[in-house]
Design a protein around this nucleic acid. Structure first.
Length: 266
DNA sequence: ATGTCTCAGGGACTGAGA
């Protein structure tokens, strides 16, 4: 059994203590990070090595950036590492993928950590970039499916898939993160043989993964569920449970996102 | 309430992005 998690940390250097605290408390084996906001030469490799975690990362100055941490006691060094979507000329660092192997069972899983563009507002230039990015991701996933038997796509999707994932669906109707166009692109991934691990195990639970820093949103629970952990259908029977950990959003000077996790037999 | 947080540039505060 291994635990896989995802967390948009909104700067790894600002959140290093939170990540180290949560990593050890949560017994996570593989943690996908988004919005590391750091160049590769400044990624805090040693802080994670000190607690027994290896890391791979793909950053850029100021914005975006992704990484994957893995517990060296349970997971072998990753192979077949890919930075960004092949055949998509991206100037931003938003994807890192690698193959991880359970030390005890020798079973492998392909991990694809993504930070989907926010999109700013429906119809804006940034929205066009988001749609293009997601269409290119879709092509990449189809290709990965031909190579790997067990796949996990996780990260900040910047899409709330259904009204149940939104604190106030009417207020957010057709707005960024909730538009039908974005929801259809999310659904397209599910339609080729993936499932949303949280929703699969928690059919009617209304829990969020992101709350805006403004408006006292967390206090009022004005949130959205926009961070997801998808597996391909081969892993449906292997999924033990899945959840969202609200606690890290209560830490002192928190990220605006909290951590999501899933446990699978591997 | 365009209400908060982070980063970079430049050496106090402003703009971008979310």
């Amino acid at each position: 059994m291994i635990k896989i998690a995802s967390w948009n940390v909104n700067s790894i250097r600002s959140r290093i203590d939170h990540v180290i605290k949560w990593l050890s408390e949560s017994k996570t084996d593989i943690l996908a990070l988004q919005e590391t906001k750091v160049t590769d030469d400044l990624f805090p490799v040693n802080s994670f090595e000190e607690i027994g975690f290896g890391s791979i990362f793909f950053g850029q100055p100021s914005y975006n950036g992704v990484a994957i941490l893995y517990n060296k006691k349970t997971i072998k060094s990753p192979k077949q590492i890919i930075n960004n979507i092949p055949d998509f000329n991206d100037h931003q660092s938003r994807l890192i993928a690698a193959t991880f192997e359970n030390i005890n069972s020798d079973n492998q899983i392909r991990i694809i950590c993504i930070y989907v563009p926010n999109g700013s507002a429906v119809g804006s230039d940034k929205f066009v970039y988001k749609v293009d990015w997601l269409n290119s991701l879709f092509k990449m996933i189809k290709s990965e499916k031909t190579t790997f038997r067990k796949i996990c796509i996780l990260g900040d999707f910047n899409i709330a898939p259904h009204d149940i994932d939104v604190h106030d669906p009417e207020k957010w109707r057709d707005k960024i993160l909730c538009s039908n166009q974005e929801r259809n692109l999310f659904q397209k991934i599910l339609d080729i043989g993936f499932f949303d691990s949280f929703r699969f195990k928690n059919e009617s639970k209304k829990i969020f993964s992101w709350w805006d820093y403004r408006q006292g949103s967390f206090r009022k629970n004005y949130g959205l569920r926009i961070d997801h952990i998808l597996f391909n259908s081969n892993l449906k029977k292997s999924l033990i449970d899945a959840g969202i950990e609200v606690e890290p959003r209560k830490y002192d000077k928190p990220s605006d996102h909290t951590a999501c996790w899933a446990r699978i037999e591997l």
